[in-house]
């Protein structure tokens, strides 16, 4: 009950915040239009912007990372971009060196909070503004993110509705330490709580990096052997869509296409599966990674121009299901 309240409260708060932000922005535009055109567009002329990412091996990170670099260049700044290749040691080393380089701002894209947080704090202590994308750090001035509460809720509702409000679901929950994944998972739990006939099978599966697809494939194959009866599993949920890819392949390989899969991120290969009427991939919530990257950089420009930033900037996400996947793909500029 408490959990459910929490989810609801956050959403209400978000709506309030959103309308407040929108109101202020609207007022600002009307008042200052014309005189402040330059600041509206933002400029990073002569600024060096540190761009640090946990990795670029997924569609999401790569899109967001490249979009940041492009946007910094477009606004006349110099990007210092470092990619940790999903290695925490490298990530910390690069942040450490970045702090020594004293850029005008650092934007951190993804990363395990407990690992990077002390270094984001050091950057702030050294007088460098820190912004983040999809990282819930208290040392970040502004976090550009998809509304993960919304994503989690949309995906969960689609799932319970697709399976008719009853049945067993298999869940990948290997990255609860990563804030967006935790929120999406919590939202699934919140929704499932009100459908007593829906059960999350225990133990939950742990998705891994690297070899996510192969690992998910073999874990799902093992689960299918454990539950050989059709109908004993209704759906497979994961907090992102790379495990979903492996799970979907395993279902096809085992001929268990009656089971549906759900994930998040809008990776092109998964959207293609959703578009295939015979594929068990039922839905994928597509974030707009490139838009997230551009938004973060525009926020840097606003900050350096003296504006105060909101704590979070939400970029809308789009749920792609069998019915609307073509439309969503078009919006994302894929296919």
């Amino acid at each position: 009950m408490r959990e459910a309240n929490k989810g609801g409260w956050f959403q209400r708060r978000d709506i309030l915040k959103w309308s407040a932000v929108a109101g202020v922005a609207a007022a600002g535009t009307t008042l200052l239009s014309g005189t402040m055109a330059f600041a509206q567009e933002g400029s990073l002329k002569g600024k060096r912007i540190g761009i640090s990412t946990a990795g670029t091996d997924h569609f999401f990170d790569l899109q967001a990372y490249n979009a940041q670099i492009e946007e910094v260049k477009r606004l006349g700044g110099e990007p210092i971009a470092v990619d940790a290749g999903r290695n925490d040691g490298k990530l910390v080393s690069q942040l450490q060196t970045l702090i020594a380089q004293k850029p005008d701002a650092i934007v951190q894209l993804l990363g395990t909070v407990s690992v990077i947080d002390p270094w984001l704090k050091r950057a702030r202590d050294a007088g460098i503004p820190v912004l983040t994308i999809d990282v819930g750090s208290s040392h970040s001035l502004n976090n550009s993110t998809s509304d993960n509460w919304g994503i989690g809720k949309d995906l969960a509702l689609q799932l319970v509705s697709d399976i008719g409000g009853e049945g067993n679901i298999v869940v990948f929950n290997g990255f609860y330490g990563v804030t967006p994944c935790a929120i999406r998972y919590d939202q699934l739990v919140n929704v499932v709580k009100y459908y007593p006939k829906v059960k999350i099978l225990q133990p939950e599966l742990r998705d891994v990096i690297p070899n996510t697809v192969q690992d998910a494939f073999s874990q799902i194959t093992a689960i299918l052997n454990k539950y050989p009866e059709k109908g004993s599993i209704k759906a497979i949920w994961s907090a992102w869509d790379v495990p979903q890819l492996g799970a979907t392949q395993a279902l096809v390989a085992a001929g268990r296409t009656e089971i549906k899969t759900y994930g998040v991120d809008g990776s092109p290969e998964v959207l293609q599966l959703v578009a295939d009427p015979k594929s068990p991939a039922a839905a994928d919530v597509a974030q707009q990674p490139a838009e997230l990257g551009r938004t973060a950089i525009r926020n840097v420009a606003r900050l350096l121009a003296g504006e105060t930033l909101p704590r979070e900037t939400y970029v809308p996400a789009l749920i792609a299901n069998k019915a609307n996947v073509g439309e969503v793909s078009k919006k994302l500029g894929i296919g």
Partner: peptide
């Protein structure tokens, strides 16, 4: 490593 990464993380084998 625990000091550098504020705890233990995965992927030690990559080293």
């Amino acid at each position: 490593s625990a000091a550098y990464l504020s705890g233990s993380t995965t992927g030690a084998g990559e080293l």
